[in-house]
């Protein structure tokens, strides 16, 4: 399973498509976080005076960046990749060329990651404008965390697409995996008051690690073992890459 620069031809294909409708996509990227900030920050936030020494809006800001990255990569590599895999037969055409299956998979994952970088970066800019973040030495580390998060969710979503018989299957993925991640990874509240089993479960969710890393880079608050979180993200990236290649191969090579 040789992976060469040819994976970028696949990435470039997706980028070429993106360029034709990036405006619509950016409206979502900008509109959504602003909506969240208003609803959660000013709406709910006005009832919560303080969270671990922060205003509520400050408390949730890092987590919102992670959830937005998570959803971007997830949508791209579920509905997007699945359409290319089945209805549009894009993957079939690509496999007729010297691009290998592993490169195809890597091109899709890195594209999903790119999409999450786009929404993550947009979020960062908006938060900076709202005064929720002041750029400093932590910026590259924040971007790296967003990148890893995007990569993991893109790879996981591609695994799901490659076993999905139809679009309906994604209901399971979102209900059983993505939505719990949204609520249980410490974005909106600390997990401390939950039963111990939940706390453990929360610790191994990839988004939990990302959220606590980002919260540390934003506010210096340590809410989970940071090195563990970082290593977990790296290990998950590698594991999910291998899984995605294997599962997609089973689906496409007959």
């Amino acid at each position: 399973m040789m992976i060469t620069y040819r994976m970028f031809a696949v990435w470039r294909r997706n980028f070429t498509v993106y360029k034709t409708f990036y405006k619509a996509s950016l409206v979502g990227n900008i509109g959504e976080p602003v909506l969240y900030l208003f609803a959660m920050g000013f709406g709910i936030g006005s009832y919560i005076t303080e969270m671990e020494g922060l205003s509520y809006i400050e408390y949730i800001a890092p987590g919102l960046i992670i959830t937005s990255s998570m959803y971007s990569a997830t949508f791209e590599c579920t509905f997007g990749s699945f359409t290319r895999l089945t209805v549009q037969r894009t993957f079939d055409s690509i496999l007729n060329t010297p691009v290998s299956l592993s490169e195809l998979v890597m091109g899709e994952i890195t594209w999903g990651m790119t999409k999450s970088m786009i929404s993550g970066t947009t979020m960062m800019i908006i938060m900076t404008l709202f005064g929720l973040y002041t750029p400093d030495y932590s910026l590259p580390l924040i971007l790296l965390t967003i990148m890893l998060t995007g990569y993991i969710f893109a790879a996981a979503a591609l695994c799901c697409s490659s076993i999905a018989p139809s679009y309906d299957f994604f209901n399971y993925y979102f209900t059983l995996f993505i939505t719990p991640m949204f609520f249980l990874s410490g974005v909106f509240f600390p997990m401390d008051n939950f039963p111990e089993a939940f706390q453990w479960f929360s610790q191994i969710l990839p988004a939990t690690g990302s959220v606590s890393l980002l919260r540390y880079f934003f506010h210096g608050i340590v809410s989970s073992p940071l090195y563990f979180s970082f290593c977990l993200l790296v290990v998950l990236s590698l594991g999910l890459t291998i899984a995605a290649i294997k599962i997609t191969r089973n689906r496409l090579i007959k």
Partner: peptide, 23 residues
Amino acid sequence: PQDDSLDQDLSVIDNLVVYAGYF
């Protein structure tokens, strides 16, 4: 191929140019 597998997301010329990229 037997089945229509053109890239629906791309224009006519981009179908060719992007495919060339794979080569």
